[in-house]
Design a protein around this nucleic acid. Structure first.
Length: 290
DNA sequence: TTGCGTGTTGGACA
DNA sequence: CTGTCCAACACGCA
């Protein structure tokens, strides 16, 4: 679920909702989501003020006062909900936003802020998400961040071409590799490859620079449109107010196996690449082999 | 009932 | 550097 556009939507929503607020309390229903000693985590962030919320690749970064930053990855099904908490601290009953698609049974962490009854709930059905806090000055050394490639929306056309030409493997594998370029996942690689008329299994060394340029442009176009639409809601993604994204309504190939290509009318096909379903139009995205 | 597939990353291995 | 397979987990579906 959460690829760059979804994480970007959440980051903006969080920034809006909690910047300037101070963390009063953290409650763990399932502390395993925090990938370090929970008591230390709690002690480190409590009483700190939220300075801002950023995104790096598919990671969320919540900057706190006194030089601390919370790193969050949402995995497949993680999400935040901005909520109202009743005044009695011990009993945390979560009043969910009306449109929320996240089952309360998978609430794992509850943050309470000093201001009003504001709270934040971390929900994650599959528990693949992770959260930890680190010293902001060490950001360059955090293993998760250190490995990331250039931001998908910041890389220039020439850098993009330089990085992808002369590689051997299949284009989709490389696009999914966060160490090469950060932010794309299964949905947006398929949508971008369709937009650029490139077969997902295309070997990169057979792609001309002009084609890579098309792909770079396609990625920007798809991601920017998806951000404008608030991301894609397939199963249980929603923003911090429980609202669904709308970009799934504009998917041209993802999840459309057997349906007709919106451009040429042929049936969309599905193949496996790196154990991941890959959707494409066989007519619009021909495979070139040597 | 059983098995399979699902938006993620990371590690082991050839 | 590549690609492949598997693991973490919970759920819906055939």
């Amino acid at each position: 679920m959460p690829e760059l556009p979804e994480v970007e939507t959440i980051a903006k929503g969080l920034h809006q909702a909690i910047a300037g607020k101070r963390i009063k309390e953290v409650k763990a229903i399932f502390p395993g989501i925090v990938r370090q000693n929970f008591r230390i985590f709690k002690k480190t962030i409590i009483q700190k003020e939220i300075k801002g919320v950023r995104r790096r690749g598919k990671y969320l970064l919540i900057d706190l006062s006194e030089g601390k930053t919370i790193l969050t990855h949402l995995g497949m099904t993680g999400g935040f909900l901005f909520i109202n908490l009743p005044n009695s601290p011990p009993k945390v009953s979560v009043r969910r936003p009306p449109q929320s698609r996240l089952n309360s049974k998978h609430d794992h962490l509850i943050f309470r802020f000093c201001e009003s009854n504001a709270g934040l709930c971390y929900n994650d059905q599959r528990k693949f998400g992770k959260i930890k806090v680190f010293n902001t000055t060490e950001e360059k050394n955090i293993p998760e961040l250190k490995k990331l490639g250039l931001e998908a929306l910041e890389i220039s056309s020439s850098e993009f071409i330089r990085i992808f030409k002369n590689r051997k493997g299949r284009i989709k594998s490389a696009l999914l590799n966060q160490q090469i370029i950060a932010g794309l996942g299964n949905i947006y690689t398929d949508e971008s490859l369709f937009e650029a008329n490139i077969h997902p299994a295309q070997k990169m060394n057979l792609l001309k620079a002009s084609k890579l340029k098309d792909l770079h442009k396609a990625i920007r176009k798809v991601l920017n449109k998806a951000i404008k639409a608030g991301g894609s809601s397939i199963e249980n993604y929603s923003d911090i107010d429980g609202r669904m994204g709308r970009f799934q309504l504009h998917h041209k190939v993802y999840g459309r196996e057997g349906e007709f290509c919106k451009r040429c009318g042929r049936k969309i096909k599905r193949i496996k690449i790196n154990q991941r379903s890959s959707y494409f139009c066989p007519k619009c995205q021909p495979l070139k082999d040597a």
